[in-house]
């Protein structure tokens, strides 16, 4: 950022990320470095940054704008003094999840896992846990795409061991 150039405009270094479907995203360096997976490309090899395109094989371009938006906002929240009011962070997080289907949420969790960013992964898994915690077993199987490998008898027996845990569920 501290360019010796006499130009008055501040030059922020950009890094090009390539999503799974080949689409390119130009991202400011500090934002890109929020992703440990991207950071690890450059550690000890800062020169590599110049023209390198970082392939993100497990991240669909559909989710890149939202994910980058999360990094930008949350790093701004962290830097701000005094820290932003809790309601402001909450409002951003709620808006982030709004209109996201279960499937989209799962895809973003996989992306955050691949990008190795704790903050985003923690936030998304907490959101997923909140979505499923009061749901039925069938809902959870569909949510994670899991096949039931119990026989009906086995399932009934395991269920009977903790029958109380099936009370008071939300509708699917």
């Amino acid at each position: 950022m501290a360019s010796s150039s006499s130009s008055s405009s501040t030059q922020v270094k950009k890094i090009t990320l390539k999503a799974a479907d080949g689409k390119h995203f130009e991202v400011e360096e500090p934002v890109a470095m929020e992703m440990e997976t991207v950071k690890s490309f450059f550690v000890g090899n800062e020169d590599a940054m110049k023209d390198m395109v970082v392939p993100l094989l497990n991240v669909s371009s559909e989710h890149m704008p939202a994910i980058l938006d999360f990094y930008r906002n949350h790093s701004e929240f962290r830097k701000r003094t005094p820290p932003p009011p809790a309601e402001e962070v909450k409002a951003f997080n709620e808006a982030f999840l709004e209109n996201k289907s279960d499937e989209q949420l799962m895809e973003m969790i996989m992306a955050a896992n691949f990008l190795n960013t704790k903050e985003l992964l923690n936030f998304l898994t907490e959101a997923a846990a909140n979505r499923i915690k009061n749901k039925s077993v069938e809902y959870v199987r569909a949510f994670f795409g899991i096949e039931n490998d119990f026989t009906p008898e086995e399932e009934a027996r395991i269920r009977a061991e903790n029958e109380w845990a099936f009370d008071g569920l939300d509708e699917d």
Partner: peptide
Amino acid sequence: SLLRFRCVS
């Protein structure tokens, strides 16, 4: 929830 989800798989 975990006790219920023992039935998942």
